[in-house]
Design a protein around this nucleic acid. Structure first.
Lengths: 258, 258
DNA sequence: CCTGGCCTCCCGGCCAGCGGAAGGAGGCTG
DNA sequence: CAGCCTCCTTCCGCTGGCCGGGAGGCCAGG
């Protein structure tokens, strides 16, 4: 019997987490063997862990035998600070902007070298966009991304400028030009893009400033995406600014309250 | 050394899950000792598990030392079917209803003997309501709850009627009267409440029917909450019905697509 | 300076978890 | 309809990873 001989130092918890980690947005529903393979766990081990995770409610087993994320993990996820603080505070303001403009409105925060989309309001008549809540998109090719990039520490800016991906034929990838854009965003207080992430859409975005004991900081970026035939893009900047200031004020209050 | 002697059969995974389970909406931020106590885990064991969970990103440790749910669990939660299928399909329709009415709109599903609030659209000018995304409220005291109750199997109805909680002085708790209301909801196709869950608000709700291979079924309930001085509550029923039918159709399509 | 609360780290015994392998269920093919 | 394949479930004895008491550190308050 091989026994635990080949466990290679991975702890039980690490294996259980690896099993959970097998799920992602490209694979939200998996069979036992897929999970075993994706998590690098022997079949029978995966089977046992899945039994426990399912029993607790972290996962759910469908009638067809496949596994998916369970309600209990959904619940836990709702307790994450990004959800509990940012989203709940910001949602009504995004709604205001959407009501005034009828376009797709986004709220994103920086996570490493990506923009993490935290909230989105988009009706059925809005332009189709790639971003969803939970998506991570590059900092250099979206409106909210550029705002977050302009507010990021220098080492992040340098790392992003070193290898900007080309998303469409309009994506700006020249480091010098990106550097100029970042400076411009800092000066003007808003960012704009034209078909740099997906063809047929323009975007503008502004920072959400929050007063903290340590001084003002950019906590998020608020942006709007419109079809590319629109001419009056900059008209939206004041609308976004009003909402962003409202969000910032509420966040500062929430911070003070702890 | 006590060793594993007193483990009482709880598996490692069960302990790790117990640690996660220490978090809930009333306690989204916890210290090590609180977690140890709430999860019934010895301090040093909790400490070790927290280290692993934090390392993986399931939890996050704040500068002040307390733990909270991490981004990675938030991500995973977004993959739950309730989020991925229902919410994403329904969100634009809730938005439509909100735009037309400016009131707070809810989508809920039944989970056991509770109504689980899955999505909510509410501006800043809407009436304040207790429900949040992820809340569980009683089936007998809310609009969406009554709709879900009317669609529930008999044993659930009986169980709910046996011990209805009194939420406000207007809550209907007499089993006979509740039974009559359920029959009425089934006949009329909508439910209404008047200050039964929180004072100062009325609500109406309709079922979301989905065509399935096994026949039509109520997948969710769509409801709206308005301040109690409004007189034209029933005017909203057709609005909700249009949206509910739209959601049902999209869900059936999504089902077919798998 | 002491006290108390809270966190971090250490260590050796022991049992819970490990995973290969056999067997079952179901579906597709020739 | 037999044969084959894929996928899932269960079994079981060995062993290495987990357990948790306790020592010690850190910090705030008295």
């Amino acid at each position: 019997m091989a026994g635990g001989g080949t466990t290679a130092g991975r702890s039980v918890t690490a294996r259980a987490l690896a099993v959970l980690g097998a799920f992602d947005s490209t694979a939200p529903r998996l069979t036992l063997s897929e999970i075993a393979e994706r998590s690098g766990t022997p079949l029978s081990t995966a089977h046992r862990l899945l039994g426990e995770l399912t029993g607790w409610g972290a996962l759910h087993r469908r009638p067809d035998g496949r596994y998916e994320i369970g309600r209990r993990l959904w619940d836990l996820g709702l307790l994450a600070p990004v959800q509990l603080e940012l989203r709940q505070v910001a949602a009504p303001f995004l709604l205001d902007v959407h009501t005034a403009t009828r376009d797709t409105v986004h709220l994103a925060v920086r996570e490493g070298r990506s923009a993490l989309y935290v909230e989105r309001v988009s009706g059925r008549e809005s332009v189709p966009v790639v971003s969803q809540v939970g998506s991570r998109l590059p900092l250099h090719a979206t409106g909210v991304g550029k705002v977050l990039l302009a507010a990021a520490p220098d080492d992040v800016v340098e790392a992003v400028l070193r290898a900007p991906t080309r998303e469409t034929r309009h994506t700006v990838v020249e480091p010098a030009r990106l550097r100029r854009e970042v400076a411009e965003v800092r000066r003007r207080g808003y960012a704009r893009t034209a078909e740099e992430m997906s063809l047929g859409t323009l975007s503008v975005a502004v920072p959400v400033w929050v007063e903290r004991p340590a001084g003002p900081a950019v906590a998020a970026a608020l942006g709007i995406v419109v079809p590319s035939h629109r001419r009056d893009l900059l008209r939206l900047v004041p609308v976004l600014e009003v909402a962003a200031r409202g969000i910032g004020r509420e966040l500062a209050r929430a911070d003070a309250f702890r």
